Structure formats: C-alpha cells, structure tokens
Amino acid sequence: MNGYCCIAVDVGKLDNESMEIARTIGVSALCKCKPIACLIFASCNLREPNNLLSKKNKRVAVQRVQCEATRSRRHMCLGSAGAMWALLYGLQSQEAEAKEIQVGAYLPPAPSNAGFVQFKATNKDTPALRAGNVEPYQFILPSTWKRVRVANILSGNYCQPKCAEPWVEAKFEDANQGTVQVVASPLIRLTNKPNAQIEEIGNPEKLIASLGPFVTGNSYDPDELVESNVERHDDQTYYSYTLETPYALTGTHNLAKATAKGNTVVLFVVSANDKQWPKSEKILRSIVNSFQI
C-alpha cells in the first residue's frame, strides 16, 4: 500500500448529525488538525467512500485524498506507525457494549481474589480462537466491569485464519477504573522463525518498540517506557511493561504483558487516564499480573 486512503473534510462544516453519520460508516479517527481533518481508512480497497457519505447526508463536503506517511509523531496528525491503529482504536471506541451487564453476572468468581471474576477464553469467544490462531488465555477482572464489543475490522474476523496485522481479541472496561484489551499479533510480523518463543524474538525493549503503538492506540516513544521485566510461569515466558504515555489514545498510564505461543504474540494491555489511575492502580496491576496463556 503506497499510503493511507483518506477523506478530507472541512471540520467546520460538520454538525453533530453529520459527524455521527461519518462515524457510522467508519470515519471516526479525526486528526486534530484544522480546518481539514484527515479521516484515515483501514484499506485502500474501499470504493467511493465519499459516495457512501453523500448518500446519507448531502451537507457533508468530502473529497478523497492520499495521506503521506510521516516519521514525526507530534508534528502531523498521525504518524505512519500509529496511523492505522489510531483509526482502529477510534472505530472501536464508537462501538456499543456487547453486554450491558457486569461481568460478575455471568463469569465465575476468581478462586483467590475476592471481588474479582475469572475470564477464561474459549473457542466460542473470538474468530482467532475458533481458527486456532490464538491459544486460550485467562485473567481476572473486578466483577463490576463490562465487556465491550470489538468492531469487526478490529476483531480479525475478516482476515482469519491468515491475518497479516494485529487484531483485538477482547476488550473490557469500567468508566471509573480503566480498560483492558487483549491484542494478538501474527508471529511472522516479528520474526521469520516458526513457533518462536518470545525470547527468540528479542529482548523486552525490542518487542515493545514493535508493539508499542498497539499499547498506546497511536504511537510509541522509547522514553515512555518506565520499566520492563521478564517473568516465567509454567514454562511460559512473559515480558511485562509499565509505561507513562501522555499522548496515548488508550490513556496516560499503561501496563502491558506479552508472550508468544504457537504462531501468535499475545499482548495484554491495561490502561487508565489520570483521573482513574490514582484510585485504580492496585486493581489494574492485579489484573495485568493475572494474565496467563
């Protein structure tokens, strides 16, 4: 792909109704550069996106343009490394919750964590698990959290069983505490060695340099890495991370844990904003520490 397929819209001409229509067709990753907002599509194979928009609302002035990739993460709306994921994160944020009930209503209690429940993924949960591309994983959550629907373009449903780019397996959130995402990346994106262990891909710093944008939702700067560790559980190696990410779409505070198994690297991300973090840090650390595959 030579660039990103975009629609350029005069932000000043978009009223609330028009913006909602734009979001409905997947145009939600608005770059914050006025007066023109670059709306990046996930694929250059989209046909006549401006026609799709004009059919719904004649008032939206749209033209199709080509965005150029950039190495700068702060001087343009979205850089080349994080641009696509920013779009996908934006699409996901617009999706309604899959279950409008707390997880405590349908998940079993965590054996040794009062107030938490246990989530164990099965092949009924996601397209990748059904396709055998991801090994079952598990973690704990506070019983008050809710599961959030993952947009089809994010879920990997359209590309299984041979996805070339990372996808979101599952997402849970609590408005007062934070967000959890399980992200899966094809192993071949990181190494040419089949069934490689995470140590064979590289050290923790090398791995997060490749997967950092999928933690933050847009871009990654090595200066944002506060701490990294190597853990071993049941013959499985995990890399764990603490990141302070002031420009992240996911939140200013991110905890992550990664491991490789089979043909996939699984990245478990726990995020919070400045308001959520002081009260929920202990809970979020318990969640990320519980992740296993």
Results as ranks from 00 to 15, higher is better:
269 V>S: 02
140 I>F: 01
223 D>C: 00
108 P>N: 11
194 P>T: 06
193 K>Q: 14
197 Q>Y: 10
200 E>R: 08
133 N>M: 15
194 P>H: 06
219 S>L: 04
219 S>C: 09
252 T>Y: 02
51 N>T: 08
251 G>K: 02
292 Q>Y: 10
163 C>W: 04
266 V>P: 08
125 D>Y: 03
292 Q>G: 05
137 Y>S: 07
180 V>Y: 12
237 T>A: 03
255 L>R: 04
98 A>W: 00
85 W>S: 02
178 G>R: 08
284 L>P: 05
134 V>W: 02
62 V>T: 14
94 Q>H: 08
79 G>E: 13
198 I>W: 07
108 P>W: 11
232 R>G: 00
4 Y>C: 05
138 Q>S: 15
245 T>K: 05
13 K>N: 11
248 A>W: 09
207 L>S: 02
257 K>Q: 07
216 T>M: 01
68 E>K: 09
3 G>L: 05
174 D>W: 00
164 A>L: 13
203 N>Y: 02
166 P>N: 10
16 N>F: 07
146 K>G: 01
272 A>M: 11
48 E>S: 10
119 F>V: 13
85 W>C: 07
236 Q>V: 15
286 S>T: 15
60 V>S: 05
278 P>G: 03
221 D>H: 12
196 A>P: 14
2 N>W: 04
184 A>W: 08
148 V>D: 01
280 S>T: 09
114 A>G: 00
74 R>Y: 14
93 S>Y: 01
111 P>R: 06
110 A>Q: 10
